[in-house]
């Protein structure tokens, strides 16, 4: 099997192990009960870990879809002649979006988009936009002048140059930006319960309030594993989609 094949197989095994782990509610209760005999509720009880995990995946999935569409869109637009004037503005806005602490972005977005899942998704999207927009711009700008000149001289139209040259050449950078945004979103989504949404942040925040380390770990361990698996999945995808990268 090729190196990529091995990587993909290991990854599939990793995801299977992860889903088994978050479905094993009984196991968590027993292990946490044994580790922390003094706490009365060793696992979060209003939702199963399985439910919390899927809420978290849902938040991340919707956010990342928006981040990729908007981020790549902005990156392409600001590197075309029509949108070039907006490049500095977009750069600044996305930077501001990210330099704010995530919690501040969450609360600042509240009056605009309201409490609940919409608010959380909007804030998370704003927060994760920077790496994708920035890497799309940098990726598109990294296309060598002579290659673009050759493409023009060989009779490729502007659209053909974009799709057959600029986008593929930018792809490694774009994918790396998406990977950064994904890990960021998985981690930051743990704050979503503060604006009234679910996810793996729910037991963490409950645990912090009740000084219950078992609850904190029940949220934190799956989030950490999710971030790790997300990162590895993107890396595998990158290797598969961009075989020309050394």
């Amino acid at each position: 099997m090729s190196r990529l094949g091995v990587q993909a197989a290991l990854l599939a095994a990793g995801w299977a192990a992860f889903f088994w782990l978050v479905s094993a509610q009984e196991l968590w209760a027993r292990v946490m009960g044994a580790l922390f005999p003094q706490v009365s509720t060793p696992v979060y009880e209003r939702n199963t870990l399985w439910e919390l995990t899927w809420q978290h995946l849902g938040l991340t999935g919707v956010t990342m879809t928006l981040v990729v569409l908007i981020g790549v869109g902005l990156g392409v637009w600001t590197t075309r002649a029509q949108g070039h004037a907006f490049l500095p503005l977009v750069n600044n806005l996305t930077t501001v979006g990210q330099t704010f602490p995530p919690i501040a972005v969450l609360f600042l977005a509240l009056p605009l988009v309201g409490f609940g899942a919409t608010g959380a998704v909007a804030a998370l999207t704003l927060y994760a936009l920077l790496p994708v927009t920035r890497s799309t711009v940098l990726g598109l700008q990294s296309v060598d002048r002579p290659v673009l000149d050759a493409a023009r001289g060989l009779g490729l139209s502007a659209a053909q140059r974009l799709w057959r040259l600029e986008v593929p050449v930018a792809l490694p950078a774009v994918l790396a930006g998406i990977r950064t945004a994904l890990v960021l979103t998985i981690a930051t989504a743990t704050l979503a319960p503060m604006v009234g949404t679910g996810g793996l942040g729910v037991p963490i925040i409950a645990g912090l309030g009740a000084d219950n380390l078992a609850l904190i770990l029940q949220g934190a361990i799956p989030v950490a594993l999710l971030a790790l698996l997300g990162d590895l999945t993107m890396r595998t995808l990158e290797r598969w989609l961009t075989p020309w990268v050394p």
Partner: peptide, 15 residues
């Protein structure tokens, strides 16, 4: 398309 174009820095598509 009816005029081949060759330049010093070649400009092959890297991908």
């Amino acid at each position: 398309r009816n005029i081949g174009y060759v330049i010093q820095s070649v400009g092959l598509f890297p991908h």
